[in-house]
Amino acid sequence: MKLIIMGLVTGVLFGFLLQKATVLRYDRQLGALRLKDMTIVKFMLSAVSVSMVGIYLLHDMGMVDLSIKTTILGANIIGAILFGLGWGLLGYCPGTSLGALGEGRYDALWGIIGMVFGAAVFTRAYPYLTETVYTWGNYGKVTLPSALGINHWPVIAVFLIAAVLLFGFFERMKL
């Protein structure tokens, strides 16, 4: 029960911030995919930069666990291509589709129904996928620091510097 209330409160905060940043809009998402409007990239990279530092600090202090996904090249690459294709058609991603509906863009509702349908289709394909794409290039739970064999802080520093340079570039180009 407590976990459910925390989920709802966290979602409300996130939905509020997404809406204020105007990143829920179809025009913003297509604008990013067409390399004409980097508002979403600014929002995402800012969130990732802040949370990356905070979570690794807490992890170093032994206060939180990381949640590292398995790298399977076959499933990751083919899945990502399909995701990108669908995202470009829909113009919302799974989380933002609910937010778009919340601000009255009810074309998102068709996307939400389509995503529930796509999830049901996936459950049928899953037994076949486990014998094919999920066996192609399984590297286990790797991270950039573990693959490079170095501490995570140099990787984080490089990421933050790259993000700031990219932000500067976006502002100069008025993207």
Partner: peptide
Amino acid sequence: KRAVTAFAGGAVAMFGARMADG
């Protein structure tokens, strides 16, 4: 046209997202 595209896009995007475990 928008509704049909959104539905199809949503289905393909979700299939891909689940495959990649995103």
